[in-house]
Nucleic acid binder design. Structure first.
Lengths: 351, 351
DNA sequence: GTTAGCACTCTCGAAAGGCGAGTGCTAATC
DNA sequence: GATTAGCACTCGCCTTTCGAGAGTGCTAAC
């Protein structure tokens, strides 16, 4: 007994129906709604086979069948083979980003919002990370006579800023001079390298030791790449719509997980640099998400940095739609950050 | 029939018990657990009176009584009269912020986290707003030859930065010169005033019209004070713990409201500049929160700007504990932003 | 190989009934 | 006059029961 064409079509019908209704599917339903001119009895036999093959589960004897994780896997794999399905959602995604190019975090938030709205599941957007960013410009901005704001521009955009304070007042011109010196010395360095160079610099600019001290701490704190600035989440409450989470305890655990952004980010970013991944139910390896699937896509900024976007929904999610939406959104973000941040031509001119 | 001492104590006992159990309280329970040497029959009579006075509700004839919003109001008012109750939570709050002074948003997030953890309700932290911030320093940081990052420092700390782009390349020294000129001209201005001054400036520095154009747009976008940078939320999932939200539909609506941060922020920030407010159930005026109470406190940074912190929980929340925690956290944040940002001495020296 | 028919299983929802918590009233007591 | 014991009564909730309905597996016929 193997998996023939007919079995496959029946399985597909079952999955489609289950995605729609979240109820176990019976042989009669398939026979009528998805026809193929077969009687329920025949379907029944096939379903029995499919169960034995591990594609279907039966909650109890007198209920219909439910697709297993294995079934979804097959379903998604064939979906992926066929190539991306274009969709009308793509248009609505495009429309949301027309015009104003905003700040990165705003875009991320908006992307999560749109994605969750389009799919009706939960969406997560992570900022670009990867090959540790190279310093490009360092600038100290005077806040008061005894404190300054450190602004660091990396090749991949802006790293967050931070206030440093010191005892001896420093005026603007001096700050500017320090900034120039620092930029000159540290241009093109990674955070680690910058850490290494700091002692040397502190000797050279010893009269401003205090400033450099603060800066040094800052580099150290950012060195470990795991500092994720912002995690945008949208539509978490959508998950409560689905019967999968009608159990309060489950829902609570899930939302509690979503609230710890670091953990969520690490879950979402676990794709082996594959641009489009689908993890189904147990494949996620996360107890709170045993009834969930996670679909991720990546977007690129210039300089090879990649961000991740993901959709989390019940295992019976509308994969084709989610895949399409994620693809479209990934493209959209790539375009967006390409335009906003892309300065390759200019940089080449400069050299 | 009036509200005498004994009635009040009985009412208090009922509220205390209901806060603990979320179950209607019967006369027998009060008689036994909260003694006072009265029999259940006497309590019963008093409860009947209290119901007539509008302090108690009865879900149905053969159930115990439930405190009404009016009862909570009385309860909270006397709590407030007695003055702040010190608590052991204060210590745990203090401990969380020892050492490292971090970036504002991090502190906010952390505050929301701690607050929700201590109270077991949901916590919200809003950044300081108020008397529209005055520009202090404007600095353009080179990102590439054709784009720069605008960093604006206001008297109240840091305003977000934004990238502007332009056609003609500008080098660092020119950017610095522009920055100096802008700072000189716009120091002490509000966003609106800055908007007004821009046309004039654009004439004077006409060769850099493009940069100023971008800047002008930026000012305009920030002019309307409703631009709230960040809303920190913690413990939203805690709300699912309480039987008040065992109804999925309610829970969903609530969480959906929480997800739209603007709306949440506007709800939390609706305190008439009173440093400590309690809104109980219907007093909130928000349908999704009819079973909730909102407690807010404010914290101050220098220059008279105020931020808001709030806790949202079921109407039967542990008010005394929440009030204490909020008070402690408000103080903590005031101290923190006082130390980090407070430069009053220095500023006075400068003048 | 496919299908009709049938007995069987098991869940779900409604109805029924008992339990228990709590009340209000009355009459006795302090 | 306030307090309390006693008692009848109410009503939500829990459990049980039971029938309906959906679905299956098997067998025998096509």
């Amino acid at each position: 007994m193997g998996m023939d064409e007919r079995k496959f079509r029946i399985l597909q019908a079952i999955i489609d129906d289950y995605i729609l209704t979240a109820e176990p599917v019976g042989s009669r339903t398939i026979s009528r709604k998805y026809g193929m001119g077969l009687s329920s009895a025949t379907i029944r036999n096939e379903m029995s086979d499919l169960e034995e093959l591990g594609y279907l589960d039966q909650p109890h004897v007198s209920a219909g069948r439910i697709p297993s994780a294995k079934a979804y896997r097959l379903y998604v794999d064939t979906l992926l083979q066929k190539g991306q399905i274009p969709s009308e959602d793509e248009v609505s995604i495009r429309r949301h980003f027309q015009g104003r190019a905003r700040q990165m975090e705003e875009v991320m938030d908006q992307a999560a919002q749109v994605l969750s709205h389009v799919t009706q599941y939960m969406a997560v957007v992570l900022p670009p990370t990867g090959n540790s960013p190279r310093l490009q410009t360092i600038q100290l901005v005077k806040v008061s006579s005894r404190s300054a704001l450190v602004v660091i521009v990396t090749d991949g955009g802006i790293v967050r800023d931070q206030v440093i304070t010191y005892q001896d007042p420093i005026d603007e011109d001096t700050l500017y001079a320090i900034s120039r010196a620092l930029t000159e010395q540290l241009h093109g360095c990674s955070m680690e390298e910058a850490c290494g160079k700091m002692p040397d610099l502190m000797q050279r600019l010893h009269e401003n030791g205090e400033v450099l001290e603060g800066l040094s701490q800052y580099f150290t704190s950012r060195r470990d790449g795991n500092h994720r600035s912002h995690v945008a989440v949208g539509g978490a409450s959508n998950m409560l719509t689905y019967p999968e989470y009608s159990d309060m305890e489950k829902a609570r655990n899930f939302l509690s997980l979503v609230e710890t952004r670091e953990r969520l980010a690490s879950i979402i970013s676990q794709h082996g640099n594959v641009s489009l991944t689908v993890r189904i139910g147990p494949e996620t390896g996360i107890p709170e998400m045993e009834d969930c699937s996670i679909v991720t896509a990546t977007y690129a900024t210039q300089s090879g940095r990649h961000g991740t976007i993901g959709v989390i929904g019940p295992t019976r999610m509308q994969y084709s739609r989610v895949l399409a939406a994620l693809g479209a959104m990934g493209q959209q973000l790539t375009d967006l950050f390409g335009v906003t941040e892309n300065e390759e031509e200019n940089q080449q001119k400069e050299r």
